[in-house]
Amino acid sequence: MDIAIFSASSLFGEDDAPTREENAETPESYVERKHQFPGMELIVREFSFHQLNANLLWPGTFAFAEWLVQHRSCFEGRRAIELGSGTGALAIFLRRSYNLDITTSDYNDQEIEENIAHNCRANEIPVIPHIKHTWGDKFPNSTPDWDLIIASDILLYVKQYANLIQTISFLLKCYKPRDRSAVSLTGNDTNDGDVVLPWPAFLMSWRRRIGKEDESLFFDGCEKAGLEVKHLGSRVYCIKPVGNENSETKS
Rank of each mutant, 00 (worst) to 15 (best):
T186D: 12
F93D: 00
E223Y: 06
G136R: 06
E228C: 13
F139Q: 13
V196W: 05
G211H: 08
L83V: 02
P144V: 10
G88P: 10
H50D: 06
Y107V: 09
L217W: 02
E215Q: 11
E22Q: 09
W146P: 05
I5C: 07
K176T: 15
F6T: 04
A89F: 08
I112L: 09
N191C: 13
N246L: 11
E41Y: 10
L185M: 11
N55P: 01
S247V: 05
D179I: 13
P59M: 07
Q70A: 15
T61G: 04
M1V: 09
Y30S: 15
F49D: 11
Y107T: 04
K159R: 14
W199G: 05
H118T: 13
Y161S: 12
N55M: 10
F202I: 10
I239T: 07
A182N: 14
C222V: 10
T186N: 15
C222K: 11
D101W: 00
V69D: 06
D145P: 05
N53F: 11
H231L: 07
I150Y: 02
C120H: 13
G136Q: 05
F218T: 02
G88V: 00
P144Y: 03
S85P: 05
V183Q: 12
S85F: 04
S73W: 04
Y107Q: 06
F47C: 03
D109P: 04
Y237W: 14
S105N: 06
Q51F: 01
D109G: 08
D189Y: 14
S73N: 14
Y98A: 07
Y237Q: 06
L148Q: 12
R33F: 00
T249Q: 13
M204A: 06
L156V: 09
A4G: 14
R180V: 08
W67F: 12
G221K: 14
Y157H: 15
P241E: 12
E14I: 06
P140Q: 08
T134R: 07
I43W: 04
A24M: 07
G60F: 02
D153R: 07
T26H: 01
D192F: 02
G84S: 02
A80Q: 03
R235G: 03
G136I: 08
M1A: 11
E113N: 13
S29Q: 10
E124F: 08
C174A: 12
D153G: 06
K240H: 12
S97P: 00
N115G: 12
Q70W: 01
I128P: 04
N123Y: 09
S7P: 00
E113A: 13
Y30T: 15
F219V: 13
Q51E: 03
S251F: 05
